[in-house]
Design a binder for these strands. Sequence first.
DNA 1: CAATAATCTTGATTTGAATCAATGTTTTTC
DNA 2: GAAAAACATTGATTCAAATCAAGATTATTG
Lengths: 140, 140
Amino acid sequence: MYIIRSGTIRAYKNIDDEEVTVRFGYSGDVIVAIDSFLTEQRTSLNLQAIKKAEVEYIQKYKFLAFFTKDLESLKAWNEILSELILQQLEREIDLLIESPLGRYNRVLSRSPKLFQEIPAKYIASYLRMTPETLSRLGKI
Amino acid sequence: MYIIRSGTIRAYKNIDDEEVTVRFGYSGDVIVAIDSFLTEQRTSLNLQAIKKAEVEYIQKYKFLAFFTKDLESLKAWNEILSELILQQLEREIDLLIESPLGRYNRVLSRSPKLFQEIPAKYIASYLRMTPETLSRLGKI
DNA sequence: CAATAATCTTGATTTGAATCAATGTTTTTC
DNA sequence: GAAAAACATTGATTCAAATCAAGATTATTG
């Protein structure tokens, strides 16, 4: 589990011979290959710095030692997991919107500051469209 | 939180003037408007029986009373949330696949028994394609 | 069981995003 | 700061899925 101290990280997955972006992490965020973190299996996600980044990391056993030490801590861990579920639900809805413009608008309105400083090609892949399509959306 | 004793339930959301299916629940499954369950806000999801169904329900306060009573229970609740996150991650990947056939195959191979007895129109909406497209996939 | 409604399939057509291709712009590197 | 590489924009074309439109099946209802 990484705490981003500066820079920007993206998580992506190889799908259809493409590197499809599934998450962005900014300074102050936590980013983690959640599948691996939860299952201790090899992850199918890749993490890449897209701005020179500094991160700290916590090893899972230390994290868990902290978050399972008493009832209150466990509830906090629980709260984090719940929050994650809600985020993923929003993400699912994002992806279900049919039109590229619709997806773009929804993601933008949900996280206005989200796409600052991120190269458009990664945003496009996050929004499941080509860079060309994303570029053309500006003109509408 | 509903425990399905018989029948089939789908969860759907209104997107783009369509009822887009986001989850199916079968006999034995638990189905819940997870956003509402976690936030206690009004849900944006609808639950609908697509086969005559019998369900039991647990109210959240009872559920939590059980799952927060001691450390072990909380860990179990935690485990459930983790499992949900992994499922949602799979779902996200499903939706990121570009071709209708690709999405169909991935979902089918992940849950072969998934689509038995479910009207194709709901499956199509779950796979973000039209019923016509789904129907034509069979011919490939 | 007949009648009606719902669903599914098939075909023809349209449409909008992907692809292809070229140029322009910004960023990186030496 | 020049050269190269990466990225973004724009235009033309292709293509695959959506839409539109009938039929064919299947399921539901009285």
